[in-house]
């Protein structure tokens, strides 16, 4: 046998030996298992499936050692690949399920937080309103206390009523304020302006029954208007105060005596608290 023939023989044998290489299925099975085993979700969520994949791969490896690249080895490797993929897929599924649950939890928490924030805002707004209300009421009480020192003050269902004697404010039959009235009225204006900013005022003029009713009516209107104008000039907002004349219609005392008539000649200021 010549060397030449040997080389030809070797050339025939070597590729055959090389052909006895690892089957593609087994390579794939190894790679798949490696990937699954390296995946944290798979390791954590599907350890049983991963173990099953490992056993399938071991079986394929053993089959390869015993039988070489046989159809059965390839089948076993194929099965091992599918088992590794199964473990991976189930691990990912568990991740998705957890993500969905987290998202729901998170949304619920968000909604709760929003609700709590709204409640807190409402509570704080309510507290602020109550504080303002309490402050206004305190100011109103102080103003009435101040008024009580300079005029007769009484409480009625329609509000707090401040009565000013007509003789102090006006000369008989006149509707111009007396100079002596201004200091007292200035105090009234200050007290009204300092009181509850939500309150409204009505200035009501009254007369006794002497003289003609129409004239008394006109006089009471003019006097009420004069007082209102003075108060507006001295700090009471014009849109908070109105004037009206009631003439001799509502006497507080008998018109038969001089004292009674003096009491009936009066200006009343009604302080109406803000409607709640």
């Amino acid at each position: 046998m010549s060397h030449h023939r040997l080389i030809v023989l070797a050339a025939l044998i070597v590729p055959t030996a090389c052909a006895h290489r690892i089957p593609e299925e087994l390579r794939e099975a190894r790679a798949s298992y490696k990937q699954a085993a390296a995946d944290p979700a798979t390791r954590k969520e599907t350890p049983a499936e991963l173990d099953e994949a490992r056993r399938s791969l071991t079986r394929a490896e053993r089959s390869y050692v015993v039988e070489g690249d046989s159809p059965k080895t390839r089948d076993r490797a194929y099965i091992a690949t599918r088992k590794a993929e199964l473990a991976l897929v189930m691990g990912r599924t568990a991740d998705h399920v957890e993500a969905a649950r987290n998202a729901e939890l998170w949304q619920a928490r968000e909604a709760l937080a929003a609700e709590q924030a709204e409640n807190a805002a409402n509570a704080s707004q309510l507290a602020t309103e109550q504080e303002l209300r309490a402050e206004a009421e305190q100011r109103a009480a102080l103003a009435i206390t101040a008024l009580a020192e300079i005029a007769a003050v009484r409480s009625e269902p329609r509000g707090t009523v401040v009565t000013l004697s007509g003789s102090v404010l006006f000369a008989s039959g006149k509707s111009e304020l007396l100079p002596s009235a201004t200091s007292r009225l200035t105090q009234v204006a200050e007290a009204l302006a300092a009181g509850d900013p939500g309150a409204h005022f009505i200035v009501e003029g009254y007369t006794d029954s002497k003289g003609r009713a129409e004239l008394n009516q006109q006089l009471s209107e003019a006097r009420a208007q004069a007082v209102r104008d003075f108060l507006v000039e001295h700090g009471v907002a014009a849109d908070r105060i109105e004037a009206r004349g009631l003439g001799e219609t509502q006497p507080v005392a008998s018109n038969t005596t001089a004292e009674g008539r003096a009491n009936n000649r009066r200006v009343e200021i009604v302080i109406q608290p803000p409607s709640p």
Binding site: Y78, R82, E85, R92, T93
Partner: peptide, 22 residues
């Protein structure tokens, strides 16, 4: 093994969609 994988892939598909919706 292929049928089991198919079932698992359907479940994964559904779980992914649910997670996306949530």
């Amino acid at each position: 093994s292929d049928a089991a994988l198919a079932i698992a892939l359907v479940r994964e598909h559904e779980a992914r969609r649910a997670a996306k919706q949530a």
